[in-house]
Design a protein around this nucleic acid. Structure first.
Length: 565
RNA sequence: CGGGGCGUGGCGCAGCCUGGUAGCGCGCUUGCCUUGGGCGCAAGAGGUCCGCGGUUCGAAUCCGCGCGCCCCGACCA
């Protein structure tokens, strides 16, 4: 391709709305333009990149025996009403001219299951893995960060159908293997982490995430290999020492001391010596949660434990009705009429401080187990400084972009949608399903996040729109023009994907653009060096410049391109 | 959905407080010049000042109501 003939609208200045690095860069480099919140047009460079990414995905999916489909995004309401997801508020819904309810698919469990149930009859047809690479639509409450959270986006989603759990385990593992190959081939730094499955999800799920500044997920990881999404991550709190011996409960006056911070100042005890009492109303019943003063509740763990997402913090009036005291003096001792859940970090502790359920009063020497009985569960969010549950070393917390999610769905859809096959005994048996997604735009965004500097991007070769940019420093110099033209032809003949910058711009402009757009190598032909029959090969990621004789250039370049191909 | 910010040629911004000719830089067009890191000179083109309503002799500017976009939080099958 000749730059003079293609559309690559690079920007010198950054549009004000772009904050995330990948968003800024992809705009400036002329990859994308925004149409509306969370809706982007992919221009020439972006589309080239996406085609490379989807090709890698396709090859690796095909390698595990998955079959590519193409399904409609436009769905009748009935399908979603049947699965129970019609009420999802991120689902785009509307009516056709006949007044029929329709929606745009946000994933394709319903459609895939629908095909499976009407076509799969026998266990002998299993296992099946079906996938597609298609647009998904989600009415996100808050689209953001360029291509990182979109309302319309491209997703590879696959679905496995097995007769039993053992089969599902196998299909799941195939996907995990394929995903490792996909993200490795895309040249990304990534982590495979344990994930929270969501209220509607199955039992097991894990995510592939790319550490990046603009990521929305927090990942806890350890040298020993343990890694989990913060929603799911478990940890040991560093040990805390309580006073020795034993002592009876002792109320003391704490006028006006309401928050943990207040009490820390007032009592001169550390926050880890306090018990934090939180009241929730769960499906109209009160649930009281106890945490260490310096810990915070993980709402996903809490919801997961409750088995429902229908809960809210209690109002001050409701808390008063339950405890006989106002917020700020609540505690577990003597509490009746509520389910009492304590975080595991309180197990085995003693002589702590908690609210007395009397206004402006707290209790000293509160000892879990002796002074109140609670169910112990892990309900707190991992905090900086916590230790790995496997090996005891300190956990790292990293921001990351979720690239892919693999789920063991089990029978959630096959049961609600009656998708069964006959097993070897001739009995109807619900299909055991898995679902597996990859966000295509997020791969490009994560690569930009991970591979950029002040001047622009240096994308991994496998997903960069071109392998090489051939820069003719001065098109008015006939020797330069001829030599560059010849090199261009040689590269085309060698199947190197080359963008020939033949514009009659000043060299500075061309170098700036070349640095910006994410092509891994630049070959520069200039007036001075052409007289020595040499040109330069510039490695964008390392910024190493190398003079190479013209007749050797193709060979040297070929070697540089080879390793990652 | 709560909090904050912004909306003025393609992009980045000033003007708004204190109402009276719509401006600057970049980009774009043409000519000259220059040619290894966004060069210089000159001449141009390009604007429903987000929309609607109100106040006023007069509104980009003041008031009201909307809409859009960004950020933080909530949410995220």
């Amino acid at each position: 391709m000749r730059w003079s003939q293609v559309f690559i609208p690079t920007l010198r200045e950054v549009p004000a709305e772009a904050e995330a690095a990948s968003h800024r860069l992809l705009l400036r480099a002329g990859y994308i333009r925004q149409v509306s919140a969370g809706i982007f047009a992919s221009l020439f460079l972006a589309q080239r990149s996406f085609l490379k990414i989807t090709q890698i995905i396709r090859e690796e999916m095909n390698r595990i025996g998955a079959q590519e489909f193409y399904l409609p995004a436009l769905n009748p309401a009935e399908l979603w009403q049947e699965s129970g997801r019609w009420s999802a508020d991120v689902l785009f819904k509307f009516k056709d001219r006949g007044g029929h309810d329709l929606c745009l698919g946000m994933t394709h469990e319903e459609e895939m299951t629908n095909i499976a149930r009407s076509e799969l009859r026998s266990y002998k047809q299993l296992p099946q893995i079906w996938y597609q690479i298609q647009e998904k639509f989600r009415d996100e409450p808050r689209p953001k960060s360029g291509l990182l959270r979109l309302r319309q986006f491209m997703m590879k989603d696959s679905y496995s159908f097995d007769l039993d759990d053992a089969g599902l385990d196998l299909s799941y593992q195939k996907h995990v293997d394929a995903y490792h190959r996909i993200f490795t081939r895309c040249g990304l730094k990534y982590l495979h982490v344990e994930a929270y499955s969501g209220m509607m999800g199955g039992r097991v799920s894990s995510e592939f995430t790319a550490p990046a500044e603009s990521g929305e997920d927090w990942i806890a990881s350890c040298e020993c290999g343990y890694a989990a999404n913060l929603e799911k991550a478990e940890s040991k709190a560093p040990p805390v020492s309580d006073p020795p011996g034993d002592a009876p409960l002792e109320p003391f006056s704490t006028p006006g001391q309401k928050t943990i911070d207040d009490l820390v100042r007032f009592t001169r005890e550390g926050p880890e010596r306090l018990i934090k009492t939180l009241d929730y109303i769960v499906e109209s019943k009160p649930v009281v949660v106890l945490l260490r003063g310096d810990h915070s509740l993980s709402e996903t763990k809490f919801a997961s434990l409750l088995g429902t997402g229908t809960y809210r913090p209690a109002t001050p009036d409701e808390a008063f009705a339950l405890h006989g005291a106002h917020l700020g003096s609540l505690g577990p001792v003597g509490l009746k009429g509520a389910r009492l859940i304590a975080d595991r970090a309180l197990e085995g502790r003693k002589l702590m401080i908690a609210g007395a359920n009397r206004d402006d009063t707290h209790l000293r020497n509160v000892t879990p187990g002796r002074d109140f009985a609670a169910e112990y569960h892990d309900v707190r969010e991992v905090a900086a400084g916590d230790l790995c549950i496997r090996c005891g070393r300190p956990l790292r917390l990293t921001k990351a972009v979720e690239l892919g999610h693999v789920f063991k769905l089990g029978r959630r859809y096959s049961e609600t949608m009656h998708a069964t096959v006959l097993n070897a005994q001739g009995q109807e048996s619900p299909l055991v399903m898995g679902s597996y997604g990859i966000g295509v735009e997020r791969i490009l965004s994560a690569a930009a996040e991970q591979n950029h500097d002040a001047d622009g991007m240096f994308l991994p070769r496998a997903i960069a729109p071109f392998d090489v940019i051939l820069t003719a420093a001065n098109m008015d110099d006939a020797r330069v023009r001829d030599a560059a033209g010849e090199l261009y032809q040689q590269m085309l003949d060698a199947s190197i994907e080359v963008l020939f910058d033949d514009r009659s711009e000043r060299p500075g402009v061309k170098f700036k653009d070349a640095d910006l757009i994410g092509v891994p190598f630049r070959v520069t032909v200039g007036s001075k060096k052409i007289q020595q029959e040499t040109a330069e090969i510039f490695d964008r990621s390392t910024r190493q410049n190398q003079d190479v004789r013209l007749q050797e250039l193709l060979g040297v370049l070929g070697k540089k391109l080879a390793p990652s191909s």
